[in-house]
């Protein structure tokens, strides 16, 4: 579905991404984990067509990405800045649907449905700034879901919410993925999270950002916050990813 070929990007003299190659299958949920400064966000922005890479290319369903591709939704880390404060929650969620050529009634219905699916059935008439951080992030997830993207990119979406909310949102993403069948790329710096939600974990190294390893998550698709995290296989995978990330944080290491 998504192919990244020899992707490199530099800002002036500073190389951020170096020769990344990655393939993501239709309907896969891939977590991308790495230390800070590994170019995770730049990678997502290249995939989203928000910036064009210095070299290499991104192909989506066989078409090279040149500008923002169709059927894409991004959930940004900075949820409070990504929602428009002058629109109600429902109007925020409904706004992208204008691109789908839907009528006002259809947009509203889709927005209400998406809000209900993230557990906020009554928030539609409120304004984003009247909600807590976790609720705002749910709204931005609802906005992405209502759009029914074929590819959903999430940039550290749970970075600034409390632990309980974070677990709820992780389960929400898993549920959405299972029922909606969309392809999801989730960037995180949380090693546990990358294993818990992912079908596959891609570990990035830094200076400049490169792909260090890809690990298949050999866990059953049904995950549970308590049971899965206690599973011996989960513990093993987490340790493996953790070693790779730590190694990545201390700079390039001879393989």
């Amino acid at each position: 579905m998504l192919r990244i070929d020899g992707l490199s990007h530099r800002y002036g003299e500073h190389a951020v991404l170096d020769d990344m190659t990655l393939e993501v299958a239709e309907g896969e949920l891939v977590s991308i984990v790495g230390p800070s400064g590994c170019g995770k966000s730049t990678l997502l922005r290249c995939i989203a067509g928000l910036i064009s890479p210095t070299s290499g290319r991104v192909t989506l369903d066989g078409t090279p990405v040149d500008g923002v591709p169709d059927g894409l939704a991004v959930v940004f880390q900075d949820y409070s800045r990504s929602l428009l404060p002058w629109l109600t929650v429902r109007d925020n969620v409904a706004l992208p649907l204008r691109r789908r050529g839907k009528s006002k009634a259809e947009r509203r219905a889709a927005a209400d449905e998406a809000l209900a699916s993230v557990g906020l059935p009554d928030a539609g008439r409120k304004y984003p700034w009247q909600l807590s951080g976790g609720m705002q992030q749910r709204v931005s997830i609802a906005r992405a879901l209502a759009y029914r993207p074929s590819l959903l990119l999430m940039d550290e979406p749970f970075g600034s919410v409390d632990a309980q909310t974070r677990e709820d949102l992780e389960d929400l993403v898993l549920r959405v993925h299972r029922t909606g069948g969309m392809t999801i790329l989730l960037v995180t710096h949380d090693i546990d999270e990358s294993v818990y939600v992912g079908d596959r974990v891609v570990v990035l190294g830094r200076n400049p950002g490169h792909i260090r390893a890809e690990i298949d998550v050999t866990l059953p698709p049904e995950r549970d916050q308590i049971a899965t995290r206690a599973d011996a296989e989960f513990v093993r995978l987490r340790a493996e990813v953790g070693r790779l990330v730590r190694g990545a944080a201390s700079g390039p290491v001879a393989a």
Binding site: R45, A48, L50, V68, D70, L72, A73, V74, F76, D78, R81, S82, L83, L84, W86, L95, P96, R99, Y147, L153
Partner: peptide, 26 residues
């Protein structure tokens, strides 16, 4: 206007004029 808000609309496929009208101007 917040660059994140602008990027959000761009990523949903809104063009420069739509971003001006829906984010920058408000």
């Amino acid at each position: 206007a917040d660059p994140v808000a602008k990027d959000t609309l761009r990523s949903f496929g809104f063009g420069p004029l739509a971003v001006l009208w829906r984010v920058t101007l408000p």
